[in-house]
């Protein structure tokens, strides 16, 4: 446990000394938080009366009960951007995890590190946590700020209730960490196998594609995010995460990493 803590402290001390990484870790959640709040504020004036009865049936189904037509419109627009919150735990760890092994290769610090009595599991757990924890905390803080902002901006309890629906709480507090674990382990796997930090970052970015597909699917109406869909996502992610953790440990071959690197 002490060795995991040591790796965790070492990674954070290294990563957060880099101002660009620190900036990215803070800026991204702030932007993702600000966007839905700005939209919520900007669309508050759109409510000019109750036109619920004039709305298409499919659109009415999307709206939680008790919302006026204008609030439904607000909820619809803001919901699209809420998915952005789920991008935070995917994107932030890529910065940290993709560099974490290949970075040690380029600075030649990996060999003395691997020469210590640390096990592969301890090393990877430390590196995993170092990338996952900031991403999850940033996501949760971002959502907390959004919740406070929404409470101030939303004109009705019904709208606020819809925005802070348990589905979103599940998405942020359950799916968020699972997405972070997915992103970290995928990036670590890539980082273990490549010899160039730029390649590691480029390849690791691929991990956001499924969520982008979800975003496009929701905007185009093909997918409707619901509590059951979020729970299914969580279950699928859990299985994928376990598989990725296993794979990242298996692919971290000390010998290959040391002897391939020139």
């Amino acid at each position: 446990m002490d060795k995991i803590k040591t790796i965790l402290h070492k990674e954070w001390a290294e990563v957060f000394k880099n101002r660009m990484v620190l900036f990215a870790t803070i800026f991204l959640p702030l932007m993702m938080t600000a966007l839905p709040l700005i939209i919520l504020y900007a669309t508050a004036g759109a409510e000019t009366g109750d036109f619920t009865s004039q709305m298409p049936k499919q659109f009415r189904e999307f709206c939680p009960e008790g919302l006026t037509g204008g609030e439904c419109f607000q909820y619809y627009i803001v919901s699209q951007f809420m998915i952005m919150f789920m991008m935070i735990p995917l994107i932030i760890p890529v910065n940290i995890a993709a560099y974490s092994v290949v970075g040690e290769k380029t600075t030649r610090s990996l060999e003395p590190l691997l020469a210590t009595p640390i096990t592969t599991a301890e090393l990877l757990t430390g590196k995993n946590l170092a990338a996952t924890i900031p991403a999850v905390i940033a996501t949760w803080i971002g959502f907390a700020i959004f919740a406070v902002g929404a409470a101030i901006i939303a004109k009705s309890q019904a709208l606020l209730g819809a925005l802070l629906d348990p589905m979103w709480l599940l998405a942020i507090f359950l799916v968020g960490p699972l997405l972070a674990v997915l992103s970290v382990n995928f990036s670590l796997m890539v980082s273990s196998r490549v010899n160039d930090p730029r390649v590691a970052e480029q390849l690791s970015s691929v991990v956001i594609l499924p969520l982008l597909a979800l975003f496009v699917g929701q905007i185009s109406g093909f997918i409707l995010l619901s509590r059951s869909l979020v729970l299914i996502m969580a279950a699928v992610l859990l299985v994928i995460d376990l598989g990725l953790i296993y794979l990242s440990v298996q692919l971290f071959e000390r010998e290959t990493i040391l002897t391939r690197w020139k």
């Binding site: 070492k10 290294e14 880099n18 600075t107 990996l110 003395p112």
Partner: peptide, 16 residues
């Protein structure tokens, strides 16, 4: 655990 090694390059963490 029982041996010490000085690798070909020092491999220190330069920003620490």
């Amino acid at each position: 655990r029982s041996v010490g090694i000085l690798t070909e390059t020092p491999g220190m963490y330069d920003n620490l």
